[in-house]
Design a protein around this nucleic acid. Structure first.
Lengths: 119, 119
DNA sequence: CTAACATATGAACAATCAATCATATGTTTG
DNA sequence: CAAACATATGATTGATTGTTCATATGTTAG
């Protein structure tokens, strides 16, 4: 509830003014939680590979499975995660379901990440 | 080793030409793995909070602990993760260690993430 | 309708991980 | 040097998660 008189950092070296200022500027906990959830979706190499593959073309589940050497089931499970994070969107055509990137944030985010990786 | 004649997607619906093209464009596995590792660092609400706090000001471990209502130990552990991902950098001043954002990719990535969250 | 196919879903298990507790390292003060 | 403080580290544990296997749903062809 409050950050009261618990025995955390008992011997406070805290710079109170700065802490108070930063506290005021922090977004809602819920927003920060959602943000972490979003990044969590990117935080798996299988999902990253799927997203990267979808950079190039719309693909069906079976394509992706073949492409990455994975089970159809594994791919389907991960697509579910990506879909619920609104990173990919499905297009149904008969029995097969084609997936593509949901919007350009995905591209931008991954590109930014790559930049960081490459120093 | 190879994506050979295993019983994956046994009854291939694969669109071979597209798959071959996408395969050619895929970055190295290692790069993709590193990228996932990077996002994994962002994929925890505690670490996101720490990063967001450092948006505003340079803070010491104790400040962050107080700010987020966490143990000094927990914060230190997470700072270690953030540091090894080169997202934050330490500055030592006597006993206390001040942390700040390592570079602007962090800001950009988080901002992009927030945009996605907010539709 | 039935068989074959493409995808989705559920349960289970191994692996990963964040917080906690205890303790170690390193720094300043007296 | 010793005591107090600030941070770091190691081991443990409960919770989360990605893959697998089995099976269900849904769609097309005969």
């Amino acid at each position: 509830m409050d950050t009261g008189d618990i025995e955390r950092c008992s011997f406070l070296c805290v710079h109170e003014d700065v802490v108070r200022q930063v506290t005021a500027e922090m977004p809602d906990d819920e927003k920060l939680y959602d943000l972490a959830e979003l990044f969590k979706v990117f935080g798996d190499s299988t999902r990253i590979k799927i997203l990267y593959a979808l950079f190039e073309a719309e693909l069906c589940v079976c394509d992706i499975a073949q492409l990455l050497g994975l089970t159809q089931s594994a791919v389907s499970h991960q697509l579910r995660v990506l879909k619920s994070g609104r990173l990919v969107k499905p297009r149904k055509d008969g029995k097969t379901v084609f997936y593509s990137l949901a919007d350009d944030h995905v591209r931008t985010l991954i590109a930014q990440g790559m930049e960081h990786i490459n120093e």
